[in-house]
Write a protein that binds this DNA or RNA. Structure first.
Length: 640
RNA sequence: GCCUCCGUAGCUCAGGGGUAGAGCGCUUUCUUGGUAAGAAAGAGGUCAUGGGUUCAAAUCCCAUCGGAGGCUCCA
């Protein structure tokens, strides 16, 4: 039985946009990191007509672009989740007028009913054909020399012949497949102006040429295109940055600093409610609270290996007396020092230290985004020290905590990702320890029947991990919670416990964060609920709305009584009509509106209207209090 | 950090080399209304900041800051 519910399983849309140079993993379940996903399996998407339509449109776009910019160099142009793109090296950036012209030209080419003709040619002929196309020449070289294909994937054998596709006046090196003819393309079911033109590095390598990427979105019918564009608009409305302002949750002010959010009272209530819940959950699960400072001696991070392994993400150390101190990028070394302060017996283990620890990491300015990518954030961090025998059970226990968190919040649309070591020298520790840690995680996933993918190069520098990845309103993926198995830091810090045999042994560490970063989690949560938080999380749980001024006193007495019970209740005693107050409360997604007028005063009731427009009618005030207290206590997702 | 685009009232946005515009919101007055827009009047902007071009710049150019999307990165 599956331990986790999945609404859909995400797969990479395509490997075309995955241009990394690592060798292909042998295990077909293992995949690379990708920024796109689709709601169908990768294989069925690649076999679909829609995939061929999008791929063919990319070629049509390239033809139009070459007409507009005769000197342009073409790179690659694959289908993606919602359409396609093509990368060009252009003499100048295309203007909006250029894009309009290109789009119009594409429609014309489509109307020409040109066949997509496939042809096999020798490498030599291909080099001649693409002699003015340096990016194609590079692709040809890599294909025939058996290095990598156009997607940066290592290929098994050198290609003996290459395929080209021709439509109208455009020839491209391409293995297809395509539609038969531009007849199969709908000139009114695509757009190349739904997104700004983007810069994209050739082969995904920051050190190489930056090309101009033009994105297109394409669908089988014009109606589906319209629906998609409408969905995009709707998604922007649930963007946590938009809702954050609308609901007065947080701000990011340049005078304070980029990536350093300020929590306004409403946001702070939301966050604090989540934190108090999690604290209690952790105490109930045998965790102990610890607290550590915001800076630490650089020597600490040298011992842990964070410095210099993640030097790039850390702020320059500050001088304190004769020593260097680092602004805390991680909590683990601190928790380790707390563990180390006492001699531990096997009987004490597992030792579970938890802290809402705020860390600061340097992120490139172009990376920052609302609450989901910031420079200072709070991890709901915990470090668990176990005997090797306890590892598997403890790991599973942590995964069950995730289940509780996700279930409580009704978050079902996430995926679990096991991040294993990739190529490169960023990883610390022996192969043997890595294997042990990886095996433990995979065994836990197996035992729990947890649906997961395995991805290379997604591990932490000290160990492999299991991550929970969710999508935001615009379908971008973000890593939230994480559980990591670590044999390395106990080694580096020479951690010990006394075993049954009265000898010293080395514990294993589990690093885990359920929310990941509280900031990011709240950001995703805002989008998950579209600002319509369940009653227990809503900053204002109920708004009392007097029918007329004369009912203000009664309204305040209702609010006072509910506040007395620990509930968050406001009174809209301002000027203006009741209708307007209802409209405003709805705009703020306040769960309950309590309308009070003469009838209610007389009967001692409140007339309850939900933000869903459902009308509960007049309830005795004590009944409503009991209702809201129950919803609050049980963290109910439903209001009625 | 890089590429493209954007920055005009509290918000959403129009305009555009010659005295600054709309809707919503806000304030005031009238209205005291039983479940999503009652009426009228009014306040509010160095057009992100700093330079430059010009008789004249919110408008054109450059730089800086900030934002959006994408790339790269993400312990």
């Amino acid at each position: 039985m599956a331990c986790f519910r999945f609404a859909v399983e995400h797969h990479p849309a395509t490997r075309h946009n995955c241009q990394q140079k690592r060798p292909s993993p042998p295990n077909p379940k293992i995949r690379r990191k990708t920024t796109h996903g689709v709601i169908m399996s990768a294989q069925s998407y690649q076999d679909s007509e829609l995939y061929r339509i999008r791929h063919s449109l990319a070629h049509v776009m390239a033809e139009a672009v070459l007409e507009r910019f005769p000197g342009a160099k073409i790179a690659i142009g694959p289908p993606i989740e919602d359409g396609f793109y093509y990368d060009f090296d252009l003499p100048q950036a295309p203007t909006d007028d250029d894009l309009k012209w290109i789009e119009k030209r594409m429609k014309k080419i489509i109307g020409g009913n040109h066949a997509f003709e496939q042809q096999e040619i020798s490498a030599e002929d291909a080099r001649q054909l693409f002699k003015d196309q340096p990016y194609k020449l590079e692709l040809i070289d890599d294909l025939v020399n058996g290095r990598v294909d156009e997607n940066g994937e290592q290929i098994a054998e050198p290609a003996e012949t290459l395929t080209i596709y021709t439509q109208n006046k455009f020839v491209d090196l391409c293995r297809g497949p395509h539609v038969e003819s531009t007849k199969n393309l709908n000139a009114n079911a695509f757009s190349i102006r739904h997104r700004p033109v983007a810069g994209a590095y050739w082969r995904g390598d920051e050190k190489r040429e930056q090309l101009t990427r033009i994105y297109g979105t394409a669908w089988p019918t014009p109606d589906e295109l319209k629906d998609y564009l409408h969905q995009l608009e709707e998604a922007r409305k649930r963007d946590h940055r938009v809702l954050g302002e609308q609901l007065d949750l947080f701000i990011i002010d340049p005078l304070v600093g980029k990536g350093l959010p300020l929590w306004k009272p409403n946001g702070a209530i939301l966050r604090d409610t989540l934190e108090r819940w999690l604290r209690q959950l952790q105490i109930d699960s045998g965790y102990q609270p610890v607290i550590s400072p915001h800076i630490g001696n650089l020597e600490l991070y040298k011992t842990s290996g964070h410095y210099p392994y993640y030097k790039e993400s850390q702020y320059t150390p500050v001088d304190v007396d004769e020593e260097k101190y680092l602004i805390k990028p991680m909590n683990c070394p601190h928790h380790i020092m707390i563990y180390k302060n006492d001699l531990r017996s096997y009987r004490d283990l597992p030792v579970r230290f938890a802290e809402f620890g705020t860390v600061y990491r340097y992120e490139k300015s172009g990376q920052l985004s609302g609450l989901v990518r910031v420079r200072g954030f709070t991890q709901d961090d915990a470090h668990i020290f176990v005997t090797p025998d306890q590892l598997l059970d403890e790991f599973k226990g942590v995964v069950k905590l995730f289940q509780t968190v996700f279930d409580t919040l009704g978050m079902t649309d996430f995926r679990a990702r096991v991040g294993i070591r990739g190529e490169g020298d960023k990883y610390q520790g022996s192969d043997d320890l890595w294997q042990k840690a990886t095996d433990a995680i995979l065994a836990a996933c197996q035992d729990l029947n947890l649906n997961h993918t395995v991805e290379e190069g997604e591990a932490a520098f000290y160990g492999p991990k299991l991550d929970f990845v969710l999508r935001d309103a615009l379908k971008r993926e973000w890593q939230l919670g994480t559980v990591q198995v670590d044999y390395n830091l106990p080694e580096r810090f020479e951690l010990e416990y006394v075993g049954e045999d009265n000898a010293r042994h080395r514990p294993v560490m589990i690093h885990r964060a359920l929310f990941g970063s509280v900031e990011r989690f709240v950001g995703i949560l805002i989008e998950h609920f579209a600002g319509k938080f369940p009653a227990w999380l809503a900053p204002v749980q109920a708004m009392v709305i007097p029918v007329a001024d004369g009912h203000n006193e009664y309204a305040h007495s209702i609010a006072a009584e509910l506040r007395e019970a620990g509930l968050r209740v406001g009174v809209d005693d301002g000027k203006g009509r009741m209708n307007k107050k209802i409209r405003e409360a709805r705009g703020l997604h306040i769960p309950y509106m309590l309308i009070v007028g003469d009838k209610d005063i007389e009967a001692g009731t409140v007339s309850v209207r939900l933000r869903t427009d459902e009308d509960l009618g007049a309830l005795p005030r004590a009944d409503f209090k009991a209702l809201l207290l129950e919803k609050d206590r049980t963290r109910a997702l439903e209001l009625a």
